[in-house]
Computed example of a mutant assay.
Amino acid sequence: MKKLASNNIEQFREDLVNWFIEEQRELPWRLNKDPYRVWVSEIMLQQTRVDTVIPYYERFMEWFPTIEDFAEADEERILKAWEGLGYYSRVRNLHSAVKEVKESYGGVVPNTPEEISRLKGVGPYTAGAILSIAYGLPEPAVDGNVMRVLSRILEIYDDIAKPATRKIFEQAVRELIDHDHTSEFNQALMELGALICTPTKPSCLLCPVREHCQAFEKGLQQELPVKTKAKKVKTVHLSAVVIVDPSGRMVIQKRPSSGLLAGLWEFPNYEVDSLEKLKQVMARDNHIVLEDLRPIGKISHVFSHLIWEITAYEAKVENVEQFTETNRKIAFVRDEDFQHYALPVSHQKIYEAHVINGKQ
Score class of each variant (00 low, 15 high):
residue 70 F to W: 01
residue 40 V to L: 14
residue 85 L to R: 00
residue 115 E to I: 11
residue 75 E to Q: 08
residue 49 R to S: 15
residue 101 V to C: 04
residue 129 A to P: 00
residue 80 K to M: 14
residue 63 W to Q: 14
residue 83 E to W: 11
residue 122 V to S: 05
residue 98 V to S: 05
residue 49 R to L: 15
residue 54 I to Y: 03
residue 74 D to M: 04
residue 73 A to L: 06
residue 42 E to Q: 07
residue 88 Y to F: 13
residue 101 V to W: 01
residue 35 P to I: 11
residue 23 E to L: 10
residue 93 N to Q: 13
residue 98 V to P: 04
residue 28 P to F: 13
residue 116 I to Q: 00
residue 60 F to L: 12
residue 119 L to K: 02
residue 61 M to I: 08
residue 25 R to Q: 07
residue 88 Y to T: 01
residue 44 M to H: 04
residue 16 L to Q: 01
residue 88 Y to E: 05
residue 80 K to E: 08
residue 62 E to H: 09
residue 82 W to K: 05
residue 114 E to A: 11
residue 65 P to R: 08
residue 45 L to I: 05
residue 26 E to M: 15
residue 18 N to P: 04
residue 95 H to P: 02
residue 126 T to M: 12
residue 121 G to P: 11
residue 67 I to D: 00
residue 124 P to H: 08
residue 12 F to D: 00
residue 52 T to N: 10
residue 129 A to T: 12
residue 66 T to D: 05
residue 69 D to T: 10
residue 41 S to K: 11
residue 61 M to Y: 10
residue 26 E to Y: 14
residue 129 A to L: 12
residue 61 M to Q: 01
residue 50 V to P: 03
residue 122 V to R: 07
residue 58 E to F: 11
residue 55 P to E: 02
residue 106 G to P: 05
residue 10 E to Q: 12
residue 30 R to K: 14
residue 63 W to Y: 07
residue 88 Y to N: 14
residue 51 D to I: 06
residue 43 I to E: 00
residue 114 E to C: 07
residue 114 E to K: 14
residue 68 E to T: 06
residue 134 A to P: 01
residue 52 T to Q: 06
residue 132 S to W: 00
residue 60 F to G: 07
residue 125 Y to C: 13
residue 39 W to M: 01
residue 89 S to V: 14
residue 35 P to L: 15
residue 37 R to K: 11
residue 94 L to V: 05
residue 53 V to D: 00
residue 71 A to G: 05
residue 88 Y to W: 12
residue 114 E to S: 12
residue 86 G to M: 12
residue 24 Q to T: 07
residue 58 E to S: 10
residue 37 R to P: 06
residue 52 T to W: 04
residue 26 E to A: 14
residue 48 T to V: 12
residue 93 N to I: 03
residue 103 E to L: 15
residue 30 R to N: 06
residue 86 G to V: 07
residue 38 V to P: 04
residue 71 A to F: 09
residue 66 T to Q: 09
residue 49 R to K: 14
residue 36 Y to R: 03
residue 66 T to I: 10
residue 109 V to G: 05
residue 36 Y to M: 15
residue 62 E to T: 11
residue 93 N to G: 04
residue 40 V to D: 09
residue 13 R to K: 09
residue 128 G to T: 06
residue 76 E to I: 14
residue 92 R to V: 15
residue 30 R to W: 14
residue 77 R to S: 15
residue 104 S to C: 15
residue 9 I to G: 11
residue 78 I to N: 09
residue 128 G to E: 08
residue 117 S to N: 03
residue 19 W to N: 01
residue 125 Y to D: 14
residue 130 I to F: 07
residue 86 G to Y: 02
residue 37 R to Y: 00
